[in-house]
Amino acid sequence: MGWFDLLFGPDGWTPLLLKGALITVALAVNTVPFGFGGGLVLALLKLSRNRPLRIACDAYTTFFRGIPDLLALFIVYFGLQSLLNKLGQITGEAWRIELNAFVAGVIALSVVVAAYSSEVWLASLKSVPPGQSEAAKSLGLDARRVFLLVVLPQLGRVALPGLGNIWTILVKDTSLISTLAVMDLLRAASEASRATTRPLLFYSAAAAIYLLFSILSGGAQSYLERRANQGYA
């Protein structure tokens, strides 16, 4: 069969690839709130006055940035699995939970992305002049409001390039989840190439879709940065 029929013919593989691409996007999008949010929390904890807490957060970041992403995913995945098994043993068979691979993938990616993004958040937290929160405090705002109303709105602009960079890493990192039996884009391509013995075609198609995602995110990123920097020299 020609490549066109294999991809777009009546029994073509495009639907499977597109479904996989959707899973890839879903993995990345679902990781953002936990990963970036977790990173912000980590960064705030790193600035806290509690020394053991600071050390623990630094250790977390060093650990997950210093080991291969693939290994981090396995550690989180198998670690969670054995933790759940332990809990199941304690509470009895009736309570057993099978870890959904998609959820496990999102958790594992979030753990890694939180470690990466905490450094970005930290740098942008430090970029907000201390005078800002001092002024807010002297106006009588409590700590929560100082952060939410004064500091947080100023973080985005500075954090944007770094976070955008992590987002592109994240989109590509989702391909690692294919090793955990999630039918993402790369795994869909693997299925198709195994069934048709045409790996060049299907991995190229997958690469093209990933490339499209990268280019789109790059464009979105520079648009957002331009917008955020309006009014700044």
Binding site: K172, D173, S175, L176, S178, L186, A189, S190, S193, T197, R198, P199, L200, Y203, S204, A206, A207, Y210, L211, S214, I215
Partner: peptide, 23 residues
């Protein structure tokens, strides 16, 4: 540069490793 930085390394590795078998 755009290709190699814009696609996952795992995908590139599969292209080389499995793709070579095809040709």
């Amino acid at each position: 540069v755009t290709f190699f930085r814009g696609t996952p390394l795992l995908c590139q590795l599969y292209l080389v490793y499995y793709g070579a078998g095809e040709v």
